Amino acid sequence: MNAEPALRAAIVPGVGALPAEDWTACFPGEAEGWDYYRACGNDRAAAVFDDRGLVLGAPLFRMEYRLDTPLQGRAAAVAQRLGDAVPGLMRWGMLGVGSPLTERCHVAVRPGLSPQDRARALAALLALLEAEAARTGDRLVVFKDVAEPDAGWLAPVLGAHRYAAVGSLPVAVLDLGGCDAAGYLASLSPATRKDLKRKLKSRASVRIEHRSGIDGIAAEIDALYESTRQNSQVRYGEFEDLPDGYFQNVARMQPGRTRFVLYWVGDRLAAFNLLLLQPDRVIDKFLGMAYPLAREHNLYAVSWMENVRFAMESHRPLLQVGQTAYASKLRFGSRLAPSTNFVQCRNGVLNRIIRGAAPWLALDRWDPDLRAFRSRRPDRAS
Rank of each mutant, 00 (worst) to 15 (best):
S314I: 10
K285E: 02
Y263N: 06
R281G: 10
G256W: 11
F310E: 05
R257T: 10
P279L: 14
L274K: 00
R295M: 13
V302F: 04
K285C: 00
R295P: 08
V302S: 03
A270C: 12
T258V: 09
D284G: 05
F310T: 04
D267H: 13
F272C: 03
R259M: 15
A271Y: 00
H297P: 03
E313D: 13
F310G: 04
L287G: 11
A271W: 03
G288Q: 08
S303C: 00
M312E: 11
E296M: 11
N298A: 15
A290T: 02
G288S: 11
V261K: 09
L275I: 09
V265E: 13
G288D: 07
P279T: 13
M312A: 06
L299A: 03
L275P: 00
Y263M: 12
V282N: 02
A294L: 08
A294G: 03
E296D: 12
Q278T: 12
Y263T: 03
L275Y: 08
L277K: 09
V261D: 08
R295W: 11
A290G: 05
E306Q: 14
Y263F: 15
Y291L: 15
A270M: 04
E306A: 13
F260I: 07
V261Q: 09
A294N: 06
R257A: 13
I283E: 02
I283C: 08
L299P: 00
E313F: 09
L277N: 06
L277A: 06
P279N: 14
R259Y: 10
W264G: 03
L276F: 08
S303I: 02
M312G: 04
S314P: 05
H297Q: 10
L275K: 00
L262Y: 02
F272R: 05
F272D: 02
R281W: 02
V302A: 03
L293K: 04
A311W: 03
L276G: 02
Q278F: 05
L269F: 05
V265L: 14
A294V: 09
L274H: 05
